[in-house]
Design a protein around this nucleic acid. Structure first.
Length: 882
RNA sequence: GCGGGCGUGGUGGAAUGGUAGACACACAGGACUUAAAAUCCUGAGGGGGUAUCCCCGUGCGGGUUCGAGUCCCGCCGCCCGCACCA
């Protein structure tokens, strides 16, 4: 080894230096008029909670590797960052700390921006915005008004969870055991008139569009498919048996199993069904039944085991296919009003819920689907309904038909009949997807730009009066909607008739804000929501990266928004995200003290004694229980602060660790050993580069071109070129853990090449040696540049390379060096490996046979006989079958 | 209940149907050192032989194949999503 003493790499000095230089040179600022091929990488933007966490580091590092790689590949790369800045936490913080929500939010943004910059992300910060910026929500209000005009918005009554203490609407997730998560007050169901985006009009399109999204994880596509929940069936009218109860002539049900109509034994209505409500007016017991149902309804999740309960209405309907027979009408707690028609017919033999209900109320169970192998004389339904395939029986004109044919026959049958001058049965497609209620009775959100006038109704705010700005002089300690409380804000005159009128005081769901921010990044200063030319040039996002927790809502809303923005002329694309990647979480061990308190990792020392791991509380010396590995969370205290990691090890070490080992879609476990290992590797590269520089200084003579082909060092060059090719493939496939392994292999190889021993043996071939080393080290630095960008710049500069490695093009792998001239072919006997032969690439069959049969192991096993069969997969494997 | 995914050394994980365990972490031994840290070298799936050989081995049981971690069938376990959707 050359005696060249070098200090350890110091990220605390080097990292800020390069960050400053990138910023000064505007290395990552992107221009819309750049003629090169475009590539748009986006990570889900963060909520400005105040501090970044390791999940952010992982997410943004992955995106950054891709962005830096694509830039090296000569693409014009858009890699922006912004803030999903509206929402409840700011209001809660405002109340707790007596700070305006706005101030709290912008202070958090400033803090987090600083943290993100310290990670060395190659972001175009000139495009940054927050959704709470007046300009952003101004554009969003324009979008809303365009949607309103295009018929994409509607206003209707809807049930909401109402917290009577905080005086606000709660999301379902904010209701725990029927109580508000913050105030603890029992939640009430209220009917409010709310604004809705008509996403359900796009159910079919959103469903069909999933088929084309082959850059998405299958899991997410399935989740969206289930969420949209398409089902095809029949809407069917049952005639009420003449009853004193006037007005209601029939009951309409929706069924996906019209083939089982002969097995019907009751009708069930939702307690929320209009007929049920009317019946309750004359039936006290029913009224009590419905009231009880409503009380249970708020106690949400517990109804998974709720019993199937019903109340007989006293009414009957005519059986539509069994002449002279009637079916009883029940009000039942398991029928949902907001799916189908809020009414069903029950066929207990072939539906588990209906069966449980029938058993409870002594209703008939008539099997009408016969499993293919079953005997009709003995087939019976006991505890479980039969929902499998078979043929229809006990069913008059349907007898003998398979299920699907029977469905069609029933549809035809009822389609031809009329009740009330309507066809009795109509084929219908139903979706579970509901319209998207966007009204929130909150202050810290985008105001809905509408004015309510007693005479003119709801009047859109005229474009010239936009933006509708949030008032800043609001009390910070009063619960409820500050816009509603504000003394003057809501009092305006009607833009149409000039009479006194009121502003809409609801603001928009924050999911609206995040449904189009990716489009705004393409022209963040445009006077309109988008600059369509820019948006259409950049979109769809080539690679979107974020957590799987947004698999449904955010991603579905964004897909809807793209379509709505297309309809209103703001975009031309329908699918906003071409590629989607959902990364895993960052986890950590949990620690608990004797008294059950959670302990933070820095409060605990873990020792390994042989096989066992023991933990001890630093402060008290008491033993600590090492618990399960969980997602990092404040409540379990198993968090590691990115700032501290960056301060101790540097950003590159944190980035490298986040990319190593675990496949990016899986959870990664944060460990002290892991981060230490990453840090060591960083130093190892620094040392390798400096060792190499020492070698170059020993042999300063120019390298003759002929030396480059020296056989002695061709192997090392192959390792280099293979790494170049494989790392590129792995980054493009987002297999960062494999790219990392390739880089380790290359580093190990180069360390041998730079070693004293190798140097001793290469005196005659010094030129070849040095050129192989030079090439290897330069390539290595380029390969690590997307992952450890600061270290890469430091090495690049130490090697005397011109310019920044951030600006260097991705190296080309020489195809000739990716192929070996010989290959080691394993030889199997009856599928078991017994030896190997070295063969030239593409060796002719005769040569392979000769080599294989002359193997000692083979001739021993053959014992003079000829093999039964010789399977030769060229250049891969040989199998001798005896 | 329905849908999806996963199961490989002490650990994280590699492996177009073709040498299972790449690469890393942890561990053990050695070198250097007064010592430690750092660094470097070596070892290692399990068992036997201890020579370079043999047997077993990817949750379990079958199957397809010259050949299965990989494909098919049936189980077991874990994780995630949805959940009275007619």
């Amino acid at each position: 080894m050359t005696a060249r003493s070098v200090e350890r790499y110091n990220p605390r000095v080097e990292e800020p230096r390069w960050q400053k230089l990138w910023e000064e040179r505007q290395s990552f600022v992107v221009r819309n008029d750049d003629p090169r091929e475009r590539y748009y990488v986006l990570e889900m933007f963060p909520y400005p909670s105040g501090r970044i966490h390791m999940g952010h580091v992982r997410n943004y590092t992955m995106g950054d590797v891709l962005a830096r790689y694509m830039r090296a590949r000569g693409k014009n790369v858009l890699h922006p960052m912004g803030w999903d800045a509206f929402g409840l936490p700011a209001e809660n913080a405002a109340m707790q700390n007596k700070v305006p929500a706005r101030d709290w939010t912008y202070a958090n943004i400033a803090a987090m921006r600083k943290q993100l910059k310290a990670i060395g992300l190659s972001i175009d910060w000139t495009r940054e915005f927050a959704t709470c910026d007046v300009d952003y929500y101004h554009q969003q209000q324009k979008l809303f008004l365009d949607f309103l005009e295009a018929g994409l918005v509607t206003r209707k009554k809807s049930k909401v969870n109402w917290d009577p203490v905080d005086m606000t609407v709660l999301a379902n997730e904010q209701v725990i055991d029927g109580r508000a998560w913050r105030s603890g007050a029992p939640v009430e169901q209220r009917e409010l008139t709310q604004w809705f985006l008509r996403i359900s009009d796009y159910s079919e399109e959103l469903l069909a569009g999933l088929d084309g999204l082959d850059g998405w994880p299958e899991k997410v596509r399935i989740m969206q498919r289930n969420w949209i929940g398409k089902s095809e069936g029949l809407r069917l009218l049952f005639e009420l048996v003449a009853d004193a109860y006037a007005g209601q002539q029939n009951i309409e049900v929706f069924t996906t199993r019209p083939d089982t109509i002969f097995g019907a034994s009751f009708i069930a209505l939702s307690p929320d069904h209009p007929l049920a409500e009317r019946l309750a007016a004359r039936d006290e017991e029913l009224a009590e039944f419905i009231a009880e149902f409503r009380r249970q309804g708020t106690a949400t999740e517990t109804l998974e085991k709720a019993e199937k309960l019903g109340h007989f209405s006293g009414l009957h309907v005519k059986h539509p296919v069994r002449d002279g027979e009637v079916l009883p009408v029940y009000i039942a707690n398991f029928v949902l009003m907001d799916y189908g028609t809020g009414a069903i017919f029950g066929c207990p033999a072939h539906d588990q819920r209906d069966l449980e209900f029938a058993r409870r109320y002594g209703l008939p169970v008539i099997p009408v689907v016969l499993p293919d192998s079953a005997d009709p004389r003995h087939f019976e339904i006991a505890g479980e309904a039969y929902t499998g395939p078979g043929s229809i029986y006990h069913s008059g004109f349907l007898d003998g038909l398979p299920i699907e044919a029977a469905k069609r026959a029933v549809a035809t049958h009822f389609g031809a009949r009329t009740v009330d001058n309507r066809p009795q049965g109509v084929v219908e497609v139903n979706y579970r997807l509901r319209d998207w209620g966007i009204s929130r009775q909150r202050y810290w959100g985008c105001p809905i730009p509408v004015i309510h006038c007693e005479v003119c109704g709801t009047v859109p705010v005229p474009q010239k009066d936009l933006p509708v700005k949030l008032p800043e002089d609001i009390p910070v300690d009063k619960p409820g909607n500050a816009l509603d409380h504000h003394p003057t804000w809501k009092h305006v005159v009607c833009p149409q008739c000039s009479r006194a009128a009121q502003r809409e005081t609801d603001t928009m769901d924050t999911f609206v804000d995040s449904s189009w921010y990716f489009a705004r990044f393409t022209a963040p200063d445009a006077e309109t929501p988008t600059d369509p030319a820019a948006a259409n040039a950049w979109l769809p996002v080539d690679q979107y990266i974020g957590g799987v927790e947004h698999a449904i809502l955010h991603l579905l809303y964004s897909r809807f928004f793209a379509r709505a923005m297309k309809k209103t002329g703001h975009l031309a694309v329908e699918e906003p995200f071409k590629g989607l990647f959902t990364q895993g979480m960052v986890t950590h061990e949990t620690y608990r003290a004797r008294n059950g308190d959670w302990l933070a990792p820095e409060e605990v020392v873990v020792e390994t004694v042989g096989e066992a791991r023991r933990a001890r509380h630093v402060a008290t010396g008491h033993p600590v229980a090492v618990g399960s590995i969980e997602k990092m969370s404040k409540s379990r205290k198993n968090v590691v602060d990115p700032d501290e990691i960056v301060a101790t090890y540097g950003a590159d070490t944190a980035r490298w660790f986040m990319l190593s080992d675990s496949p990016p879609e899986r959870d990664v476990q944060w460990t002290e050993a892991g981060i230490e290992g990453a840090s060591r590797f960083l130093q190892r590269i620094w040392k390798l580069v400096n060792d190499a520089i020492g070698v170059f200084e020993q042999f300063p003579a120019p390298i003759p071109a002929a030396a480059l082909v020296d056989e002695a060092f061709a192997e090392y060059r192959k390792v280099t070129h293979r790494a170049v090719a494989r790392v590129a493939e792995d980054i493009e496939g987002l297999r960062f853990n494999r790219a990392v392994a390739q880089i380790y292999e290359l580093t190990n190889s180069l360390a041998r090449l730079a070693s004293e021993e190798t140097l001793q043996t290469s005196v005659s071939g010094a030129g070849a040696h040095i050129s192989a080393l030079r090439e290897g080290v330069e390539r290595l630095i380029q390969l690590i540049a997307p992952m450890m960008p600061h270290l890469a710049e430091s090495c690049w500069s130490a090697l005397g390379m011109k310019g920044l490695v951030a600006d260097a093009p991705w190296p080309e792998a020489d195809p000739a060096l990716l192929i070996d001239s010989t290959v080691v072919v394993p030889v199997q006997i009856n599928g078991k490996r017994r030896g190997e032969v070295v063969l030239p690439i593409g060796a002719p069959r005769e040569l392979v046979e000769k080599e294989v049969l002359s193997l000692e192991a083979v001739s021993r096993m053959l014992a003079g006989n000829a093999p039964k069969k010789l399977i030769i997969v060229p250049d891969r494997i040989v199998n001798v079958v005896i």
